[in-house]
């Protein structure tokens, strides 16, 4: 962690992709979600009936589409990094905006899901499952928005052509954040929606 903080490119095979400070942030975020997941596992193991009853009320269609949207966003931002590496500026910027658009799709569907739960009278105090469901998915939801802001900001910055072969740290940093949001969702999807 000594020299790579000022790293401006990661063409060297053993370098951190993007900014080291962002990676510390990502690791810290993973830790927050990790603790949250383990708390969920602990609570569920102690009260499986409540969790199973709550999970039975969750539809699987929307979250599956949402998973596909986030994964496509990850693919798109990863492709954007490679496009910048080849100096295909226009393609790369469009891919970044595609990621933001896919994130927007996630946000819209997720809002619909939240609205449904609220309309059904579900609150944080309904039971332990719904407490975890609302807390986890809303906390992740905020991260999707932050991810969109970061990727969008990089897309705006990219207009002056600052991300070029060898000058990719900024866009790699944004991509890494998005992938973290995706990674967390993949576990969340399996745990909250599928494993019932």
């Amino acid at each position: 962690m000594n020299q790579s903080v000022t790293l401006s490119a990661s063409t060297n095979p053993r370098e951190v992709p993007g900014d080291l400070a962002m990676w510390f942030f990502i690791l810290a975020e993973l830790l927050v979600f990790g603790v949250f997941f383990l708390a969920y596992g602990y609570a569920r193991a102690h009260d499986p009936a409540t969790f199973a009853a709550g999970q039975r009320q969750l539809a699987l269609g929307v979250p599956t589409v949402n998973t596909l949207l986030l994964i496509a966003g990850s693919a798109s931002v990863a492709a954007a990094v490679r496009a910048f590496a080849l100096d295909r500026q226009r393609t790369a910027r469009r891919l970044l905006w595609l990621t933001v658009a896919l994130g927007m799709g996630f946000v819209v569907l997720k809002c619909g899901e939240f609205a449904g739960k609220l309309a059904a009278g579900i609150t944080l105090s309904s039971d332990t499952f719904w407490m975890f469901y609302l807390s986890l998915t809303f906390f992740h939801f905020l991260h999707v928005i932050l991810g969109m802001v970061i990727v969008g900001a990089v897309a705006v910055y990219a207009r002056d052509g600052r991300y070029r072969p060898g000058q990719l740290a900024g866009v790699e940093t944004a991509a890494a954040y998005w992938h973290m949001v995706d990674l967390v969702w993949v576990v969340l999807f399996a745990l909250v929606y599928v494993a019932r």
């Binding site: 790579s4 053993r14 951190v16 992709p17 991509a175 990674l183």
Partner: peptide
């Protein structure tokens, strides 16, 4: 995607 294959 995170490209950690190439990371430390």
């Amino acid at each position: 995607y995170m490209a950690l294959r190439h990371a430390p």
